[in-house]
Design a protein around this nucleic acid. Structure first.
Lengths: 121, 121
DNA sequence: TCGATACTGAAGCATATGCTTTAGTATTCT
DNA sequence: AGAATACTAAAGCATATGCTTCAGTATCGA
């Protein structure tokens, strides 16, 4: 039997989900282990309904997976979406740093030991 | 003379800025090197005004720094904000993975060679 | 069985977002 | 000087977001 696969989360909903402190708080809580909706809501200064709406955003982004047993919905972190976001950022940052390195080499070749004297303006 | 320091960007505006494909496109362009507003706007299917508004969001988040010379505003990537976002995500992902490792060890101790038989879930 | 628990769903509302268009201003080029 | 360039500013508008409250429904526990 095939294992259930969530739809591949795109970056838009992932970053959008991460942009709210309440939602990041919920994720933070989930790094400690699975939690019920009520447990997620407990530290947050808002109604349970609001938390459920934040949870829907997290689930839509793929960052959180939930499963209902009896009357309790248990939420767990799904790091695949987290990794997707991390990878995107990392690739851009690395691309930029490679560019700075090339620029540095070029400058070193063009006017050697100039960077050692640290001339400003 | 003290160098100008941008205000420390918080995660909310950084992730919010990253949540839009047009803005990510602009960042992507900037990894290739500094660009003017018009150059950033060129590939985007929207008015220049809209691009300027996206740029304001990027600047408010600290992801982009701009500087105007003559009539041209030149934009550059600031990887500090990018790193801040990357670090937050990474720390949470690592925390979760450490937790899974501990859980694995515990299960291995409790009922040895259970994980070798490849139970699902 | 009956009350408490754990959500679920919908409506309502203030504010934020993502554009557009129109109308500028400041520079640079010819 | 006059035209083209590169933004800048503001208003307007449709839709999205982040809550709230109120009114359920489905368990679970005594």
């Amino acid at each position: 039997m095939l294992q259930y696969r969530p739809p591949p989360a795109t970056l838009d909903p992932i970053f959008h989900a991460l942009a709210d402190p309440a939602r990041r708080g919920m994720l933070e809580r989930l790094t400690l282990g699975p939690a019920s909706v009520t447990q997620l809501a407990e530290p947050l200064p808002m109604s349970l309904s609001a938390v459920v709406q934040h949870l829907a955003v997290l689930e839509a982004s793929g960052l959180v997976r939930t499963q209902k047993v009896g009357r309790v919905r248990t939420c767990t972190l799904d790091t695949a979406a987290l990794t997707r976001a991390e990878t995107w950022i990392n690739e851009r940052r690395v691309a930029w740093e490679r560019r700075l390195d090339r620029l540095g080499e070029y400058l070193a070749q063009t006017k050697p030991d100039d960077e050692a004297r640290g001339g400003d303006r």
